[in-house]
Design a protein around this nucleic acid. Structure first.
Lengths: 233, 233, 233, 233
DNA sequence: GATGAATGAGGATTCATTCAT
DNA sequence: CATGAATGAATCCTCATTCAT
């Protein structure tokens, strides 16, 4: 049954290839695992499937990862490589209006995360956070907090430069974060966020949100909203 | 819902205890199930736990619910049905500004759903939608679509009355929906949405979002946002 | 739900009727049980179904029968009321040829047992004998042995009167018994004995068997059968 | 059946033990299953018992058989396949009297099936046919129909050669089939067919049946049987 | 007597993990 | 290193039986 036995010869070329593959193994497993965890959920994904998709046997998977949970952790860690250094640098370097920074940030966030397979990690983390507090904490520290800190700095810049109204930053960050997270989740929520037949067009969605948010953040005079609303500061 | 209540005359003291319990059972089971499903997830919750928390045995649960999946469906149905009739009526009856309707809607949505145990259903549904397409479809039809339809009508009213700018409603609804879903999810996401130490204050969060959104929706003149942004219509 | 409550009044007529029904209960339960045991098998029949078909509640059944096994035993006992007294008497009284007795016996056996619901008991007993040795022993003693004894006496009569050849009765009885048992079983064997599309016509089947058997039993000279066959005695 | 045996060269001593066991497993499991299914019935047999008797764990069984029902089907297939080719060939090749073919057929049927463990399958199938229509259909097609077709051809040969009387084959086949099925069933019926203390001697039983049947089938002149009997054709 | 709500033992099946080869 | 056969813990669900009313 193991056909590989029949075809494996001891030429150096073959050894080299095997060697190379050996080193590639963990990465292939992580890719396969990401796909499947995102597609079917953590619990519903069988390790055997992950192994099969990576082209190895079940046993081999356990050579590289202590258990299924460790595999999940590794998947998350592996897929949140530091965008933030780049993104922070971009922010520092930017010279235009803060509104433009916000717009750019959301669009790039989409392009570099939302449009990739990593998008599904948000939903994956949300679903599994309860069962894996340790990894949730890790994700919080490595992803959530730096992300929100960056948004915060952006908004602060707008306020400092008089482009944005004075805002309670603790809450204002969510006017940027919430729509983006919602967008990511909506793509893996099976119609729970956005009805399936609707199919959100991401770029249009972001534009629409920006159109509203930026106006709301701006230092222009506010309309009168009585009753439930606090007057603008 | 239990019609029998309407027809029972109070003379039968003898039948009381057993029968009263029987009527209470489904509700007790649904409450227990909601708690546990939200806390541990659907798959990770054992039916026996649900039964135990409701103070009955495993078998009793299956007297009232055909299987675990039906129990989940019943939980969803039990905790969401009936809001929309009220909410639609409220909307029809309201005479004030549309901004106030939006504000009221978000606050009431919070109070009647977000602040209750039912809040966790959003995350529960998102996590399980992939594994239970039937339930997802049910939720989509019974909850998501009517909810978004209501928001749509509200925004349409604002536009019709000249209070709001002309908007692409397909996308504008999410300026209301996204922050609320995000809020609900954040309370059950183990810090994936909002870092745990931050502890969002819901009323303040809603006020902050409203403050920005309503301004963004309003017909007042927009600030100049160049580059990525479309000019206001 | 129990509609009977609504209609039960305390008139003497009603009481009489209830009384009558009460006495009829065990019989109704036995009838229902026989139907279901034969149709679905013992294990696959739920006591609740039996009770429902008899028009009573599950609890009531246990008022009359200690448990499901006792119910089965009662069903068997109830449905093998003494044909043998009649049949033995018929045999004693008969004056014609023994071949005619055999023919009559098989036909009457069919009419009074095979064509009735009792027919299914043979298959039921065969299936359950292993699980209920006690009742198998009972059936053996009350049904199988008397039946074979009668056949034996019939054959003996044929031999004694020179109508039949001398036969080893221990085995010859099965030339009569086997075809009949096979017929009974075939009607409840789901195509294991006789392919379902074939549908044996009982009277024709019996005639065909008789035609062959009686010839084989008769004292007429035998054809030459070499090799495997013993010569006729 | 395991083709791999044919292709395995004997150089791989290292792989031996584990692999040999793997190949033996299905057979060991089928043997264990046959024993237990026949002894206790299908429903009453726990898969764990089957596994234990085969010396493996519960899980291992499911490595080889999708579920309990497939195990049953495999048992049937394993124990009946392949006789008919031989038997049909034997029939074609035979040159003696048709009476001898009949005699040989019954004796060999006994020796190759009745005297083996496979004998119990007949009763097993009869008991379970109602609950597993799919298996019943399979057995009907693979076992019952080919078997009866063979008997039919044998009888036809006898008629064609003037050895047997003209017979309605649809019914005459059962003069051969019924006694054999009865014999098989009797060995697993707990005394329902044949009282336990009697202990049928199979060879003697078959001889006795043959003695009667063959005489009845033969073209020799028939004795007068009046009344219920049709005159011989 | 009659009811039917409640019980809980019992069994098939899945799948992460181990380990002999 | 790699394999995949073997394991057995874990859980849903059924249904005979009990017993408070």
């Amino acid at each position: 049954m193991p056909l590989s036995k029949l075809f494996r010869c001891s030429s150096t070329a073959a050894v080299a290839k095997r060697e190379r593959r050996k080193e590639a193994r963990p990465g292939e497993l992580l890719d396969a695992a990401l796909d499947l965890f995102v597609e079917k959920g953590f619990a519903a994904t069988r390790v055997e499937e992950v192994a099969a998709r990576a082209g190895v046997s079940k046993g081999t998977l356990f050579l590289y990862f202590q258990n299924k949970e460790e595999l999940l952790k590794a998947v998350v860690r592996h897929n949140i490589s530091g965008y933030y250094d780049d993104w922070n640098a971009q922010f520092e370097a930017f010279e235009g209006s803060t509104a433009d920074i916000v717009a750019m940030r959301m669009n790039i966030w989409w392009e570099q995360v939302g449009a990739t397979k990593a998008c599904g990690i948000t939903k994956l983390m949300m679903s599994e956070a309860g069962n894996f507090p340790e990894i949730a904490a890790f994700y919080q520290q490595e992803v959530v907090q730096p992300g929100q800190a960056l948004i915060r700095r952006i908004l602060q810049r707008g306020i400092d430069r008089g482009e944005f109204r004075p805002l309670d930053l603790d809450y204002a960050v969510y006017s940027i974060v919430a729509p983006m997270i919602f967008l990511f989740l909506s793509r893996h929520s099976g119609g729970i966020c956005v009805p399936e037949q609707m199919q959100l067009e991401p770029k249009k969605y972001i534009a629409s949100q920006l159109n509203i948010i930026l106006y709301g953040l701006s230092a222009a005079p506010a309309p009168a909203v009585e009753n439930t609303q606090k007057a603008r500061p």
